[in-house]
Design a protein around this nucleic acid. Structure first.
Lengths: 114, 114
DNA sequence: TCTTATACTTCGGAGTCCAAAGCTATAGAG
DNA sequence: CTCTATAGCTTTGGACTCCGAAGTATAAGA
């Protein structure tokens, strides 16, 4: 309590602080976020409607919001083709693929445990 | 559309269906859920107040809710000692530890990437 | 003119998150 | 006998997030 050395965060009681996790982990801590990373990563690139087909329980607006958040967090890249009707493709960035690699064992175990 | 064979889920377009993930993954797709599993797993057992110290940004009620959900999902066990003042200890079950093992690489990468 | 197609955005209601205050029980102080 | 302290929550009400359904934009084709 008395020893407040400059660098140590308040939560670093015994050597591990979980506060820095607010970035990527927060982005993943939302409904369908982990499934979405896995789905996009399982293909080279995907269109919006294809993502919806893979995740039929999620609403359009939720998928749209997740994609925005992922782009903001640098996990996916969005490529827009100015055709009519319009075409948009989503794919994982290198960071997104790192996340997917580390996420896969968890998702596999979770679906096997059902 | 016409071919509705009994077993295949609607979302199983090209060999992978993400619908069964609704169980454990849904429980983990909430605020602070992944951090909480990691924190409890880093100790043999923890008391409520200790968990709060490790995760100062999370509210009491949110931590309480996560712990209820984890117990319901079979990820943690709650041991209550009928003393005054009361004492309650939380620890991971075997399933909880499986989750933690698979979660750790992701959390480590995420905190390193900050 | 009306329909078709894609990729969203907007809407109102239901559910989730937050901080702060309240609750339970009993031991010990005054 | 009343007052305080303690641990582990639950409750409250306001803000934010999720939902399905409906609407928006564009231009080619019937």
């Amino acid at each position: 309590m008395a020893d407040t050395t400059a660098d140590a965060p308040v939560c670093d009681i015994d050597g591990t602080c979980y506060c820095p996790l607010t970035g990527v982990i927060d982005t993943l801590s939302r409904k369908y976020a982990m499934q979405l990373v896995s789905i996009i990563g399982a293909h080279d690139s995907l269109r919006f409607a294809e993502i919806e087909e893979h995740l039929p329980t999620a609403s359009t607006s939720t998928i749209s919001k997740r994609l925005d958040e992922f782009e903001e967090a640098g996990l996916i890249s969005r490529t827009q083709y100015n055709e009519i009707p319009p075409r948009v493709e989503y794919s994982l960035t290198d960071d997104g693929d790192e996340v997917r690699t580390r996420l896969e064992p968890l998702l596999e175990w979770a679906s096997a445990a059902e």
